[in-house]
Amino acid sequence: MLVARRIDEEAIALQRQGALPGYAPSKGQEAAQVGSAAALDPTRDFAFPTYRDLGAAVAMGVDLVGYLSTHLGTWHGGMYDPVASRFAPFNAVVGGPVTHAVGWAMGAKLDGTGGAAITYFGDGASSQGDVHEAMNFAGVYRLPVVFFCQNNGWAISVPTDRQVAGGSVAKRAEGYGIEGVRVDGNDVRAVYEATRQALRSGEPVVIEAMTYRMGPHSTSDDPGRYRSLAEEQAWAERDPLRRAARELTETELNEAEAHADEVTRQVREGLLALGDRPGEELFDFVYREPTTALLEQKRAWKEASDV
């Protein structure tokens, strides 16, 4: 959790310095992400993240330089192996990873591997039609997929009570004939246990982790325009890192700080050392068999770039 917090802070700093074009902070949601991802069995389960799930990537051991390279647009889906890490390329389409996870879960059920999918999305994304269709499909076919909603209170600048009818994403599960669980998203142990049980059930489950986005929606957002300082301060008292730190000794905390600082240094240096990818890759990985039009575009690009 501390590694995720430090890298999150570093990514914001890199964006302010012009090294990253944009970034979606995850401060405050570390317990929800780390606790849920830690419950996965990396030999058989698979995660489908959004653009705000750095903590899940850290917990699953994803190469973090490769992960953050997605923000640079240097590669299609990030420069890490999603199959080896069991962590799909993160999806910037609101609600996008939910249907992908359901498709994977259908395959897992047909294969009889016993694995389960977990898909991350926010309270705002829960209002997307894709999420409804995915939950309905999973309910009909009894697919092994955990719909993990991080209810962080805000769909960009719109509060949850203005865009989630009924006020609870977990309660919607009943309409699809599946189990719905609401958990304290700032309690990493509670999140881990709820996710572990859901994954091992072999059934579709909706988990609504109640947490808070302590930072802006993105580095181009100003949360001070739509929420109060009093609200932010109240949630700061419930910071998941401060909560988890109470269970550790001073020695353990010092070791965690030193480890997080070292990992952050390595990630920063690795990210800044990345060079431009070969321009040909803009064309080489569009289709399995390139079209005539694409080959013509590649030829024109090479002629222009050689001038």
Rank of each mutant, 00 (worst) to 15 (best):
V3W: 01
R16L: 13
R16D: 05
Q17N: 08
P21D: 07
P25R: 04
S26I: 13
A32L: 03
Q33S: 03
A37W: 11
A39F: 08
D41F: 06
P42M: 11
F46P: 00
F48R: 01
R52P: 03
L64W: 05
V65G: 09
G73H: 10
G78M: 06
A84F: 04
A88C: 02
A88Y: 14
F90D: 01
A92R: 00
V94Y: 02
G96L: 08
W104E: 05
A105C: 05
T113F: 00
I118N: 02
G122R: 02
A125G: 11
Q128N: 11
Q128G: 01
V131L: 11
E133M: 04
F137D: 01
G139E: 02
V140C: 02
R142N: 14
V146G: 01
F147A: 03
F147V: 04
C149N: 12
S157H: 11
R162Y: 06
A170W: 08
A173W: 12
Y176P: 04
Y176T: 06
R182N: 00
V183K: 04
D184A: 14
D187K: 08
D187A: 13
R189G: 07
R189C: 00
A190S: 13
A194F: 11
E208A: 13
Y212P: 00
T219N: 13
R225V: 09
R242C: 01
A245P: 01
T251K: 10
E269N: 13
L271V: 09
L274I: 14
E281R: 05
F285H: 15
T292D: 14
L295N: 12
L295F: 05
A300I: 02
